[in-house]
């Protein structure tokens, strides 16, 4: 897969220094907690994404990665902590409002509207556009980036292959013209070719100035792609890694720190 475009970090964006990022942070998460009934999925984590940065979250199954992302989006209730976008607190519980502030999410499993055409799916993506600014990219650019979206315009989204669906899902998110793109396991269930296509598109999106927070189970690929990555195990951030971190260190942390993480739970 194309890893080198990820090295392009817009000027001024901090690299690997979360403390320094706070002054220019786009997204800041502090002490986030998510609980489902009595079980705690996320136990007080803090992270940040700088303007134009690509940040990853890796961890084993059930580490709380998706919950973190969904809590940022406001799609699950958080039991503690704060999420701010450019210093402005994001109120939980109304993802539609957060979407309209410039945060777009590609949910795990794509979640296209299967009975609708690709065109209709993309049209829904445009809903969250902010009216007070010119969009960062026009439809043509999105079409260029994701030829699938153009080719199968009038096809029902549910009939596309997994890789094609993922492309449409990302295109849908992009059409909202987000400042921050949240991706939940974009490689899940895709063929290696499709994964490569998705990541090269992401690299391109990053070049256009969109910040990315990427949740992935594939640690090696994510470490390579992102400027920094948080290693999330058992609902807590164990440490922060970057391209220079040996992958073995990450893998070890999955099992070393928290034995409960060893039980691979079916998602």
């Amino acid at each position: 897969m194309g890893a080198e475009p990820a090295a392009m970090t817009p000027p001024g964006a901090p690299l690997g220094a979360p403390g320094a990022a706070s002054s220019r942070a786009l997204l800041e998460v502090e002490d986030l907690e998510v609980t489902y009934g009595r079980s705690r999925a996320v136990e007080g984590i803090s992270l940040s994404v700088g303007e134009g940065e690509v940040v990853g979250i890796v961890g084993p199954n059930g580490a709380g990665k998706s919950s973190t992302l969904r809590a940022i989006m406001g799609a699950v209730r958080r039991s503690g902590g704060q999420v701010t976008l450019r210093g402005k607190a994001l109120a939980p519980g109304r993802p539609e409002n957060i979407a309209r502030l410039g945060v777009a999410m590609v949910p795990e499993g794509r979640h296209l509207f299967a009975s609708m055409t690709v065109k209709e799916n993309l049209e829904l993506g445009r809903l969250a556009r902010r009216r007070d600014r010119r969009p960062r990219f026009d439809d043509g650019e999105v079409a260029e980036l994701f030829p699938v979206a153009e080719e199968f315009r009038d096809q029902r989204a549910g009939l596309l292959s997994g890789g094609q669906q993922q492309q449409v899902a990302i295109a849908r998110a992009l059409l909202a013209d987000p400042d921050l793109l949240l991706l939940d396991e974009p490689s899940l269930g895709l063929s290696p070719t499709a994964v490569a296509a998705v990541f090269s598109a992401l690299a391109h999106i990053h070049e256009l100035g969109v910040s990315i927070l990427l949740v992935e189970q594939r640690a090696e690929m994510t470490l390579e792609f992102c400027s920094r990555s948080y290693v999330l195990v058992g609902g807590r951030i164990r440490f922060e890694a970057d391209r220079s971190t040996p992958i073995q260190t990450v893998i070890d942390s999955y099992f070393g720190a928290d034995p409960s993480a060893r039980s691979e739970l079916r998602r």
Partner: peptide, 18 residues
């Protein structure tokens, strides 16, 4: 279109900003 989106997938519709 928005109504159909909600009918098909309530939470995703909200995520895309419906």
């Amino acid at each position: 279109l928005r109504m159909r989106a909600v009918a098909e997938d309530f939470s995703t519709a909200r995520i895309v900003g419906v």
